[in-house]
Design a binder for these strands. Structure first.
Lengths: 281, 281
DNA sequence: ATCACTTACGGGTGACGTAAAAATC
DNA sequence: GATTTTTACGTCACCCGTAAGTGAT
């Protein structure tokens, strides 16, 4: 058996054409390379090089060996790469959501509950999330309805409630008990472009309104410097409170969005810490 | 870099399911295998096994690694095999002949002149041999005519002369000076089935004769126990002489067959010993 | 004189085997 | 009690680096 380190030396020597240069790149001494090449020749019992007094070059057999040695090293490197990928996948968790609320609420716990390097979150339709959970493309999903399946655990974990955010000067600012969608239909709104299933709800109940979609990075700043109404929820409110604005709860039933957490039964033990944390929260 | 011996241990362990059995087949101690498996785990930084107190089994990552490790070992084995094939080809010489005479005459020198494991001889038509020599499918060919080519060396080396072999009772047995083909046309003959270009000659000059073709293994015995005429040559005569028979030279010009040895100029140095031996013989 | 390869020599890492312990069946 | 894995420990192989040697440019 010709060990990989020898094949590595051989290929590097072939690449650079002389032992001295190869030894520098391999961080070994040059005599060590001489010995290694001799060792390969002895082990195979085939002359691989033309040895002259101060020059060593590959003969036909040596060139042939290099070709195959490269394949062996490639196979080894692929193995290492795939195992690292696998390891990475073990420390990666995929969270799927119908709306971003649960991430705002629970995001921090993901990192404290696991030894995670990567958290992948994606907002998708409920049916798609369920399919991906069953295919193990998602580890945890947050959906709006109870889903019953023998392989899945699904529990209610959260209610997100919608609030209207208006400047104090707005004509509805005095309605402290809350308002209904119909009271403000036709107005224009600043709104996040990543709200998932909330989008259906506001468009259904505010059919005559216009929405200025912004990504989350810009939204808060825009809202604070504008008199246009916008939305917050009980979850996002902590981050977005502004003294200049009044926050009025929507009183419609649809303005309360339930979240159900779902995961594969077989992952229950892995997720134990996280589940304990969020369900008691 | 995970060295091949570790991968070999891993795969054998996977194959046999426990370290003790694997250690027996690998001719190492069992603790050595324990250490090796730990070493792989450490090097990859991934848990590969379920360690219980007296049982160690592969987990998902371990199974994955085995798959890739098998590929690496396969690549290594292929490399070794191909290099051995190459080595073997270096110690193989192909001799092509238009007729078997030169092999009878020089065969032994092939083995004493080279470090040969394999000598491949084949009897073919002259044109085919020349083409194969140019394609390097033949190392040396023996043909009946001088062939001129800038890459080829071609020299006369041998004359083979045909003799009739008849029982003492045969009607031509008294013609001590020799005979002509025409004197015995119409007779039946025992003859080797591997005579190459001699076949054309006897069939041309003995158009009314019948030939019983036998392989060389059987021929001598058959001839000795029969009264049927047969052939020998100055080369094969040494092996086939029988007191019961008379050997008469054919006097026709065609009964003397010249042989020319031909080989590629670039191989001259490799063949030096052999050439020196046979050309002076 | 410099460069490139080889040989010689001494040192340290690490892979090995033996022995013993721990745990399961 | 037998089997299997793991830990402990001492030994030895072998791979390495330094230094010196040999030719070639």
């Amino acid at each position: 058996m010709i060990e990989l380190y020898l094949l590595e030396y051989l290929v590097k020597f072939h690449e650079l054409g002389n032992l001295t240069k190869a030894s520098e790149q391999l961080y070994v001494s040059q005599p060590s390379l001489t010995r290694s090449m001799q060792k390969i020749e002895n082990e195979l019992g085939i002359e691989l090089f033309n040895h002259t007094k101060n020059k060593i070059t590959f003969n036909e057999a040596g060139e042939l060996l290099v070709k195959y040695a490269q394949n062996v090293l490639k196979a080894h490197d692929l193995m290492i790469e795939k195992m690292h990928d696998y390891k990475n996948s073990l420390s990666t968790i995929s969270i799927g959501l119908v709306a971003p609320g649960p991430i705002f609420k629970y995001g921090n716990f993901l990192y404290t509950s696991f030894n995670l390097k990567n958290v992948i979150t994606s907002i998708k339709k409920e049916e798609e999330l369920i399919e991906e959970l069953l295919n193990e493309k998602q580890t945890i999903i947050f959906i709006n309805h109870l889903f019953d399946d023998k392989n899945i655990v699904c529990k209610k974990c959260l209610e997100e409630k919608l609030f209207l955010s208006v400047p104090k000067s707005h004509f509805v600012a005095g309605m402290k008990n809350g308002i209904y969608f119909k009271d403000i239909d036709g107005q224009s709104f600043l709104m996040s472009n990543q709200i998932g299933s909330w989008e259906n709800i506001v468009q259904k109940h505010l059919p005559n309104s216009k929405f200025f979609l912004e990504n989350n990075d810009n939204l808060k700043e825009l809202v604070n410097s504008s008199i246009i109404p916008s939305f917050v929820t009980n979850i996002t409110m902590n981050n977005r409170l502004s003294d200049e604005r009044i926050y009025l709860p929507f009183l419609d039933e649809d303005a309360t969005m339930p979240f159900y957490i779902a995961y594969l039964k077989k992952n229950e033990s892995k997720l134990e810490n996280f589940l304990k944390t969020i369900l008691n929260y």
